[in-house]
């Protein structure tokens, strides 16, 4: 712990306390929205208008600007969910449990978007909406894992117990993450290989790469915004008998 400056430790201690966290989210929310609008605006302008059509796929490739960032988010959010779930499991930090369960619907949404837009991209390019190849199947399993987490949490009344159960399920499901990532390399399938996350040079032109990265950042910021909204309601419900929530309720009048 001596490696971490005192101010940082203090910050995390304060943030783990529900009323402080709630007040903090009020302050950062407008900034997050501004950053999100700017990133999305420039990303879409660059991707849909400035970037040229693909020499093989024409304009259909423009689905990439939501398909790939969504697929990245589906994996990223799963890892956040599993890690914060594990932190909640080990140290019983309430906020970590809440981050884990609040991430699940957002991750499920991004997984759905990745599958849905992939299907709409596959139809004109592969000639089929769906194939049972390794990448698509493992991503579908990811969607079921998210839905399993949401269902399990809803089925257990005691939310602290529910958080434990959900964390264990999420941790077991982590085995699926590397399978999704490497599926296009391990199995020769219809889905194309990675274009951006390769160790050598990315095989995508810079005029297409920049909007893609902007959209990836935009989705990251969106996740923060949506996560904070979910955390707020989850905190209020869990802490409804606490003094700070009662004070908040009276403020609303």
């Amino acid at each position: 712990m001596f490696l971490i400056p005192n101010a940082v430790v203090r910050f995390f201690h304060r943030m783990a306390s529900p009323p402080h966290f709630y007040a903090f989210t009020d302050k950062v929310m407008p900034w997050l929205i501004i950053i999100f609008v700017l990133l999305t605006g420039f990303g879409l302008y660059g991707g849909l208008y400035l970037a040229p059509a693909d020499y093989q796929q024409g304009d259909s490739y423009r689905i990439i600007y939501i398909h790939v960032p969504s697929a990245w988010m589906s994996l990223f959010i799963y890892m956040v969910m599993a890690i914060s779930g594990a932190i909640g499991l080990v140290w019983r930090i309430k906020l970590a449990e809440i981050v884990a369960i609040s991430s699940a619907p957002i991750g499920a949404s991004f997984t759905f978007i990745a599958l849905f837009t992939g299907s709409l991209w596959g139809k004109p390019m592969w000639g089929t909406w769906w194939v049972w190849d390794a990448r698509l199947t493992s991503e579908l399993i990811l969607l079921f894992l998210y839905l399993g987490v949401i269902g399990l949490y809803g089925a257990i009344d005691d939310k602290r117990v529910a958080s434990k159960a959900v964390a264990i399920l999420a941790l077991v499901g982590v085995v699926n993450i590397p399978i999704i990532h490497y599926s296009v390399e391990w199995w020769n399938t219809l889905h194309q290989g990675p274009t951006v996350t390769k160790m050598d040079k990315p095989s995508i032109h810079v005029s297409m790469l920049i909007p893609l990265l902007l959209m990836a950042l935009s989705f990251k910021v969106y996740y923060l915004i949506a996560l904070i909204q979910r955390i707020r309601i989850e905190l209020l419900q869990r802490e409804r008998n606490a003094q700070w929530v009662k004070a908040k309720v009276l403020e609303q009048v």
Binding site: G58, S60, R62, I63, F116, W121
Partner: peptide
Amino acid sequence: GGYGFYVWTS
């Protein structure tokens, strides 16, 4: 370029 339906539905 003829892919409007797929792109805009996405």
